[in-house]
Amino acid sequence: MSIGAYNNDEPAQATQPRVFSLRVSYTTELAAQLDTALQFVVRKIGFKPSGPFTYSIPSEDNLILDDTNGNRLIINCQKLESNDKIKNIIFYTDDCLRDYHKYILLGVEFTSRPEYNGSGLQVNFLDHAGNCCTLLEERIYTET
């Protein structure tokens, strides 16, 4: 399953350059069971389908999900034959502690406590398939 995460406020084609380079707009999540992966995204981390939705979607179709923070997730499914290892998936938030707390109540399993780095505040969790995910609140430290 391929996931492209876009912010609604930004044009899809011409994104503004950012101070920090950690922002990615496209990443790959590997899932053995597509329906289980979608259940995790929808039921655990709260993304809502923008149209008619079932937990099994045919490959080659795009699926659009929105979260409560205004982030949009475009899911493009492709069947892979290889057994590649887990990638790191970054979910962007405008308030890491709020979403950390929300996800804990939804039963998400975190592998660390929220911690600070040069990009902002982040916390790591595992999804249903054991993929490593990061919830990241980017912060700009150059303002007065």
Binding site: D95, L97, R98, H101, Y116, L121, E137, R139, Y141, E143, T144
Partner: peptide
């Protein structure tokens, strides 16, 4: 400034909205 300001601004926003959760 920095993280101190970010966190206190988030907290203030939640308190003004009246969030009920002590844990958060």
């Amino acid at each position: 400034s920095g993280d101190m300001k970010y966190n206190i601004l988030h907290l203030k926003e939640h308190l003004e909205e009246g969030i009920p959760n002590d844990m958060l």
